[in-house]
Design a protein around this nucleic acid. Structure first.
Length: 418
RNA sequence: GUGAGUGUGGCCCAGAGGCCUAAGGCGCCAGGUUGUGGCCCUGGUUAUCGAGGGUUCGAAUCCCUCCACUCACCCCA
């Protein structure tokens, strides 16, 4: 027996309304903010991610689906959505468009991780990227957009965690301070953190181990070591967020696991849920485009996990519009009736009416049972009597009332009910 | 990659070495009305008890290995 690969899932018709709901809200959000849809390949040159996400990150180190194609190209299933969009921005000369260029996407994301609640090897992200504008006004707008998205979904009790991790100019100095602070504490740190101290000191801050937490609480804060430009950017962002009425939590331990972030980083956390429960996150990545071969271009974006949103919608008991039910179920008995049923179904669909047509192989009882289970508003019944009279018997499935009518009248009636 | 828990028909689950050629509920199918659903009643349907090996006269039940799922660590969406 074949099964869906570990960490992947089938989304069956009954759960589709949640996805449809989220997509509709996302589309409306992007319309309001002027974002255009972009689709990029599910796989890219592996180097794109190694270069942008960072050689030292977990995503690149141990989570990428890497493979060679038959021409020996080194490819990777995309482990995140930002780098491919930036690659497309460069490749299609979007720097010639009015800046910033605003793009959104729905993308399958692949990471070889141990599956868990809200964590999959293939998951789906909705993300937005605004490329080509360095202003903190844009940071505020993007953050507000992300929050509005969750609000429009009906979600409550989530918080915005915010931090600035500086830029190429000031971060080295901060990292130095961080190392100096941590050096004497090294013996008390967990094994992972011993390694981080040398390789990726920023990540020391978000270790969840009790011993390391204590150390991290007292650690130097990146926001205290920003250069003048970064400090001013961060201060302005605060002003705009306040102007927008956005409440945020300054979290100096928020650093994110992708190397390309600069200055603003943020995460949206639900009040309840497991530890890997971030609903979404993002930040500014002013160096990324130059890093992968474009000219220096500032940018900011965010992404959210569709599966995690569904999880939270269900947990919070938010109801979504149900899938559309068929207006009419056509039941028939006998060969002549079957021909009429086939013709009627075709006519009704031409008229835009949703119809389920029975093949008529089973008893009328069975056909009506099917009509009921399908949630049809009406059942159109055609037997030999109806064929002779040139009519159909229309049964209201809710009231049980039924009457004979001309096929043309039936189409009018059902069409109005749509 | 690490740790813990779980694994019985499509789904939920009973079952604690012999009464299990595995019970019940949901679902599905058929019948109860020679052409009528939803409720009710009747009958039927689907399980080599995750896989492999072992202990035993005897294993769904005990042991081992593997696999998968769930949860946590880690990381993030």
């Amino acid at each position: 027996m074949f099964k869906a690969p570990r960490g992947t899932a089938d989304t069956l018709p009954e759960e589709q309304p949640y996805w449809r709901y989220i997509q509709d809200k996302a589309l409306e959000l992007c319309r309001l903010y002027g974002y255009g849809c972009i689709s990029t390949p599910a796989f890219e040159d592996a180097g794109l991610f190694a270069r942008s996400v960072g050689e030292g990150t977990d995503i690149v180190n141990k989570e990428m689906y890497l493979f060679k194609d038959r021409s020996d190209n080194e490819l990777a299933l995309r482990p995140e959505g930002t780098a491919p969009v930036c690659r497309a921005y460069i490749e299609h000369g979007m720097d010639n468009l009015p800046q910033p260029v605003k793009l959104f996407y729905f993308a399958d994301i692949f990471r070889y991780e141990r599956p868990q609640a809200g964590r999959y090897r293939q998951h789906h992200q909705f993300g937005c990227e605004a490329i080509g504008d360095p202003s903190p006004v844009l940071d505020a707008e993007v953050i507000n957009m992300a929050l509005n998205f969750f609000t429009s979904l009906g979600l409550v009790n989530f918080s915005l965690q915010l931090n600035s991790i500086g830029c190429r100019k000031c971060r080295p100095g901060y990292l130095q301070k961080l190392k100096e602070y941590y050096a004497p504490l090294a013996p008390q740190l967990c094994a992972d953190c011993q390694v981080r101290l040398d390789k990726n000191p920023l990540r020391l801050l978000d270790c969840k181990k009790p011993g390391c937490q204590a150390a991290a609480d007292e650690a130097p804060k990146s926001s205290d070591y920003l250069c003048d430009e970064c400090a001013q950017h961060f201060a302005s962002l605060g002003t705009y967020l306040t102007a927008l009425g956005v409440r945020y939590v300054l979290n100096h331990r928020l650093v994110r696991g992708l190397d390309y972030y600069t200055r603003t980083v943020f995460e949206i956390q639900p009040a309840e849920g497991g530890s890997q429960s971030a609903l979404g996150g993002g930040g500014r990545y002013d160096d990324l485009i130059a890093l992968i071969g474009g000219k220096s271009t500032p940018a900011i974006g965010f992404a959210t996990g569709m599966e995690r949103i569904v999880l939270n919608l269900v947990n919070q008991g938010i109801t979504v519009p149900p899938a559309e039910k068929p207006a009419v179920f056509i039941a028939c008995m006998g060969g002549n009736a079957r021909v009429e049923a086939v013709k009627l179904a075709a006519k009704m669909r031409d008229a835009g009416i949703a119809v389920i047509s029975s093949s008529g192989e089973r008893s009328l009882k069975a056909q009506l049972r099917h009509a009921n289970a399908a949630g049809a508003s009406y059942a159109a019944i055609i037997g030999e009597d109806e064929v002779k009279a040139g009519v159909v018997m229309l049964r209201n499935m809710e009231s049980g009332e039924q009457q004979e009518m001309q096929p043309g009248d039936l189409i009018k009636l059902a069409g109005n009910g749509q």
